[in-house]
Amino acid sequence: MIAVNELTKAFGGNKVLRGINETIEQGEKVVVIGPSGSGKSTFLRCLNLLEKPTSGKIIFEGYDITDPATDINKLRQKMGMVFQNFNLFPHLTVLENITLAPVTLELMSRESAEKNAAALLERIGLSDKAGAYPRHLSGGQQQRIAIIRALAMNPDVMLFDEPTSALDPEMVGEVLELMRGLANEGMTMVVVTHEMGFAREVATRILFMDEGLIKEQAPPAEFFSAPKNPRLQDFLAKVL
């Protein structure tokens, strides 16, 4: 579904990505871990062109998103993104947050968008919050709503940028549970996270990034029990 070819990204003189080659197939749950500064967030943000690659190609469902002629807005409708800081729209209610994009982009009528939103809210047990404003909700609630806001667009892939890093520990669980549910339903996911437990349970493949490159990757069992790259061994020793 996503093919990344020789992706590099430099911010000024700082080379953050030094040549990534990777393919992500439908149904995969790819988890990306690594030390800070390794470029994992940048890599993720390149996938929906929130960051413009310095060089290299990214093909999404057959379209080269790095080509300026491509209609990136249309393609982004098929990619859902979840941010560390939720980024809910504070001036809109929860319901409006979820229905804004589908209605504005004329993908659904207002009624069907609201019905869809209601169903999604029901799924996470927050139906009574439909008319509330984001600032009235806890972090965990906000992030779960951010996730279903992205889901309301019926994306083909969901990108998660450290979705639980800004949450109080007691709320991390409810978000991971939602993500687990999505994974079980077959959603293609790319997740940047520090949550090793989640990675072990949900990932089909784990990538270890360091210094702008993918240094090792493996399915979870092998990844955690038999790391080969010395940097990865180091990293795991510290975090596990």
């Binding site: 929906n48 929130l50 807005n73 249309k74 982004r76 409708q77 990619m79 859902g80 993104m81 941010f83 800081n85 980024n87 809910l88 729209f89 804004l100 994009a101 504005t104 982009l105 951010a146 806001r149 992205a150 667009m153």
Partner: peptide, 12 residues
């Protein structure tokens, strides 16, 4: 982040 969220949803 507000702009990023909006653009990520596909809004121009």
């Amino acid at each position: 982040g507000q702009t990023e969220a909006g653009r990520s949803l596909g809004l121009n």
